[in-house]
Simulated scan of single mutants.
Amino acid sequence: MVPEGAYSDTHVTEIMRPVAKGSAASTSRTATMASRPQGASRARRRSPGSSITQVSCRSLRRGVVEDLDAIVNIERTCFGASAWKEEDLAAQFGHSFARVWVWEADECKHGVSGAVGFMLSWQTEDQIQLMRLGVEPGWARRGIGTELLKHLVSREERRSTITLEVRQSNESARAFYEKFGFDTLALRSGYYNDGEDAIVMQYEIRGSPL
């Protein structure tokens, strides 16, 4: 899922699918992290969110189980056939390694209330895996995705990197992450269910300008 209004024909960037710890897919991912696609170049480091219109108010908070309906709606709207199942999203609230953040609309200012964007990440000892990031299409291009990413970076000073996966064909999403400061790290062949390749991208937290 992606900030700024959905990059791809369904307005999202697809990040990662749930994978059981120790599974063959998980092992394959680890093995490919060290390689960089031939011809890939590191993106020039930029200040996160530069040249992107920002939202006028801050309505970011930690997600709670009561946000599940809104999160499921965003997930389905953004990801379509690739959306996670409701039970998979619900399970994230019970995982100690999972973090859910939502962007809540201000009813007084916008006439609506509830989560209009959300972000899910998994934490390890020194790394963050960005699993899902989505914004309702009607709230696109207001800087909500950028603010969510900025928040993730600012809270994770003890960790060194953020990694994610995005469809190779999703050029708009890849451009967004490059603008934020992510670099292309590797290619995972046939990663998605339909056989499309995934691009692994990484953001180095330490020393990153905010």
Rank of each mutant, 00 (worst) to 15 (best):
C108V: 06
S160V: 15
S169W: 09
I74E: 10
S96D: 11
R158P: 09
F180V: 10
R46E: 13
S189C: 01
Q129M: 12
K179R: 14
R142G: 08
Y177R: 01
G39C: 06
D194Q: 02
V100P: 06
E204N: 08
I128K: 01
S154Y: 01
S154D: 14
H151R: 12
L149R: 03
Q127Y: 05
A105P: 02
Y177E: 00
R158L: 15
A31Q: 14
A31M: 11
R142Q: 15
W103N: 04
S51W: 00
R46G: 06
S189Q: 07
Q38R: 02
D194C: 00
L130I: 12
C57A: 02
T27W: 00
V100E: 08
E196C: 01
N73A: 14
P137A: 06
T161I: 15
W101S: 10
W122P: 00
S59W: 00
E14C: 09
I162M: 02
I52T: 12
R45W: 10
W122A: 13
T30N: 05
A173F: 12
K179A: 06
Q129H: 15
S160T: 15
Q54H: 01
W84Q: 13
A115M: 05
L60N: 01
A70C: 06
A31Y: 05
G195L: 00
Y192W: 15
M201P: 11
T13S: 14
T124I: 08
S26P: 00
W103I: 04
R17P: 04
V102E: 04
M16Q: 09
A115E: 09
R174K: 14
V135R: 00
T77L: 08
G195W: 06
K150E: 09
A20S: 12
D67S: 04
I15C: 15
I15F: 15
T30S: 06
S47R: 05
C57V: 06
L148M: 12
S96N: 09
E104S: 12
I74Y: 10
V135D: 05
V135Y: 03
G117N: 01
P37Y: 13
V153N: 02
T146D: 11
L164K: 07
S8K: 05
R159Q: 10
R62A: 02
P18A: 13
S23I: 10
R158K: 14
E156S: 15
V64G: 03
R58D: 14
Y7R: 09
I162N: 01
G134H: 04
V64K: 13
G5L: 07
E66Y: 00
V200F: 04
E196T: 08
D126K: 11
K179H: 10
F93T: 14
S82V: 09
G195T: 03
